[in-house]
């Protein structure tokens, strides 16, 4: 298991090839080539939306802490957890 900590300057990029569509609060996703499916809840799908272009972790935390009215530290913990999960499902990758 990789450590949960990610450097705040790490750049987060979506992996190519994912299709996404909204059904209610869910964002249903499909990767055509690998035939993988995924489902993101409200917060996860907001992060996915924000990652339309690459962003640093710091930028993502600042944006979301404003939107959800939480401290940057709280945002960092939740976002890092989500990003690790999303990376393990090949939704995105990190660039140092």
């Amino acid at each position: 298991m990789k450590p949960l900590h990610l450097h705040e300057d790490v750049v987060i990029k979506r992996e190519d090839g994912w299709l996404a569509g909204r059904v209610g609060d869910d964002l249903v996703m499909m990767h055509a080539k690998s035939n993988q499916f995924a489902n993101l809840s409200a917060t996860g799908s907001r992060i996915w939306e924000l990652l339309e272009g690459p962003r640093t972790l710091k930028n993502l935390c600042e944006t979301l802490s404003c939107e959800y009215d939480i401290t940057a530290e709280e945002a960092m913990a939740d976002i890092t957890k989500f990003l690790r999960m999303a990376e393990s499902h090949n939704l995105l990758h990190f660039e140092q």
Binding site: V23, G24, M30, F37
Partner: peptide
């Protein structure tokens, strides 16, 4: 919705034709 999307894909009339004709995007 996730389970439903998987079942819709699985229940294509001819799943191999969705692959062969590369119409995944329309299908999804």
């Amino acid at each position: 919705p996730l389970e439903a999307a998987v079942e819709l894909k699985r229940n294509a009339y001819r799943p191999t034709l969705v692959e062969a004709m590369e119409v995944h995007e329309d299908y999804f």
